[in-house]
Amino acid sequence: MTLTAIDKQLLASVADLHEIPIGAYNIRKDGEGVARQSTANIQILPKTDPNQPGIDIIVKPGTKNESVHIPVIITRTGMHDLVYNTFDIGENADVLVVAGCGIHNAGCDSSQHDGIHEILVRRGARLRYVEKHYGEGPGEGQRILNPQTILKIEEGAVAELELVQIKGVDSTRRITRAEIHDRGSLRMVEKLLTHGQQTAESVMEIFLIGKGANAQIIARSVAQDNSRQDFRASLIGQNYCRGHVECDSIIMDQAKIAASPQLRAEHIEAELTHEAAIGKIAGDQLIKLMTLGLTEKEAIDTILNGFLS
């Protein structure tokens, strides 16, 4: 496999990859797998159905402390990539998955990646899942990312998701759906920064089905310039369960933000809470940092970096 400088830059941005990763990996470039490696415990297989391009990632039960990297990069303008990835995390396994998509668009047609991830976290397993989105390139063409994540968390399993989009994605529509069974737990953190004319939409539906199911959803976002964000998160409690959703946004310039956390209880023992806050950077935060020698711009950067860290 030969990677260009642009490929390497994209891989570093979305997967912190500077070399070929250790462990299992699959690198997809412009709609095709360019590098793949399975390990003794983690198998990566291309899907056979030509209508559903993508891979199956199968983690053996009991696999501990292993990682899977599955970055996607797009460097061709006008490329529309659709991919289906299916994860099967075996019972009592404990693994890290680093997904993510980087687009370098140098042309004037839009480049788009729609990733559909189906994730099954089996009984007693623990999954950490990190997905970063990043766009760059001098072209006029739009950089579009529409990820869908569909999770099933079995008894006593734990999933921790971190979804980050900090730069360069013109339009995104993110859908996340999760089913949580007995004593299963989901913790999801979404961090988003939009600027220019960008738009971002995130819709989440979290079903707390099992007894003792637990979900904690945290969304932090910053909207700058003329960008728009729309965030809708529903928690549906159908058993003795606990759920909390929190959306916290900083609004700047002429941006527009809508945040609608929604709670639906369908069981008397469902305990659901939400918090939502949108506000600009407080004047005394800026002033404080300026009395410590920062310029106003440096103070804003410090506040935003902290907020999204």
Binding site: D284, K288, L292, G293, L294, T302, I303, N305, G306, S309
Partner: peptide, 20 residues
């Protein structure tokens, strides 16, 4: 030093001292 110092979500004590 402010009479009522402001709070910063996500900024750590270490970061503030370092800036200072």
């Amino acid at each position: 030093a402010f009479q009522q110092p402001p709070r910063f979500k996500g900024v750590r004590v270490r970061d503030l001292l370092s800036i200072a």
